[in-house]
Simulated scan of single mutants.
Amino acid sequence: MIDQPNSPLRQRMIEDMASRRFKEKVQKDYIRHVRNFAVFLARSPDTATAEDVRLYQLHLAEQKIGAPSVNAAVAALRFLFNVTLERPELARHLAGVHMPRRAPVVLSQDEVSLLLDAAPGLKYRAAFGVAYGAGLRVSEVVALKVSDIDSQRMTLRVEPGKGQRDRYVMLSPQLLEWLRDWWRAARPQAWLFPGQNPVNPMSARQLSRVVRETAREAGIAKRVSPHTLRHSFATHLLEQNVDIRVIQVLLGHAKLETTALYTRVAVNTIRDIASPLEKLKDLVGRVQHA
């Protein structure tokens, strides 16, 4: 059984994930989803049939499990069947749930200024500045090292980014000044934003909590997270007419269609586009007087 700590199946699946360098969190999530499947079956997953897979998906639907959780379970079971059990015929019966992409929450530049001004101290002002000024994910912000700052080339090295893709992003003079203020005050040695124990970086949860609290204190009514700052970075660049493919590289997106989502919220860009009706203005006037 996969839920037994020392079961051969569990150990093999862990080894399969480790050999592919899955992150520890992903490994734990996959094991949890496969364990849930085993509990549903009341026997080991290596005895599963196509009908078992169908019934389990029906069970998830009846339990009104959210689409993200269903898709995570599907990903875990696909890995189990395709890789660990080498039974791809079962994986073919798994179907994910379509999730409509909602337009992201974006702050105005005034709201970003309010948030940065309200940051509780140099550390968080610098961390907020990195999230907005360089468009980093919260996991990337907290994983930054002092050595990732290149003040000569004015870049930040993001290592490792999502999907293990390293990249460089711009380092603005204003952000560099805030980072230097923070470094002079705290002298961090390895991690740019260390946690309570300097051996470890600040947690993503901690940074997210402080962002939410700061937004409330600043009087920002929108639901704000570190990812909101990343969304705002991309949207504001698009409104400045920065090429969308450049924004894609800065964000570390594998697909352009992911970056294109920001065209739905780039208000300045939308507002500045001339409606085709304007081209008919003179013609409409002539028709009326004919």
Score class of each variant (00 low, 15 high):
Ser147Gln: 14
Met170Val: 15
Asp181His: 12
Ala119Cys: 10
Glu217Trp: 10
Arg271Phe: 06
Gln4Leu: 13
Phe22Val: 00
Tyr168His: 15
Pro173Cys: 13
Asn241Tyr: 04
Arg286Val: 03
His93Glu: 12
Ala38Gln: 09
Ala218Arg: 03
Pro100Ala: 00
Ser275Lys: 09
Asp282Phe: 03
Ala218Pro: 04
Met99Gly: 02
Ser113Phe: 14
Met202Asp: 10
Tyr132Trp: 07
Ile270Leu: 13
Asp110Arg: 15
Gly252Arg: 04
Met170Pro: 02
Ile14Glu: 14
Thr258Ser: 15
Leu179Asp: 11
Asp3Leu: 11
Asp29Arg: 01
Ala73Arg: 12
Asn241Lys: 13
Lys255Phe: 08
Ala143Leu: 10
Arg286Asp: 09
Ala48Tyr: 05
Arg12Pro: 00
Pro5Glu: 10
Ala91Gln: 01
Arg216Glu: 13
Ala91Val: 01
Val74Asn: 11
Arg184Gly: 09
Leu80His: 02
Arg10Glu: 08
Leu85Ala: 07
Tyr30Phe: 11
Asp243Lys: 07
Leu9Asn: 03
Val284Arg: 11
Leu77Arg: 07
Arg87Glu: 10
Gln174Asn: 12
Val242Glu: 02
Gln63Met: 12
Asn241Asp: 15
Thr84Trp: 01
Arg180Asp: 15
Thr228Met: 02
His33Leu: 09
Ile273Gly: 01
Tyr168Ile: 10
Val210Asp: 11
Val169Cys: 14
Val146Leu: 15
Ser44Lys: 07
Pro120Ile: 14
Leu179Glu: 08
Ala72Gln: 14
Leu280Arg: 05
Glu159Phe: 15
His59Gly: 00
His33Pro: 00
Leu176Ile: 14
Thr49Arg: 08
Val146Asp: 05
Met13Asn: 03
Leu277Met: 07
Pro100Ser: 04
Val105Met: 01
Lys222Ala: 11
Thr258Asn: 06
Leu229Ser: 05
Gln27Thr: 10
Met170Ser: 15
Glu159Val: 12
Tyr56Ala: 01
Pro8Gln: 08
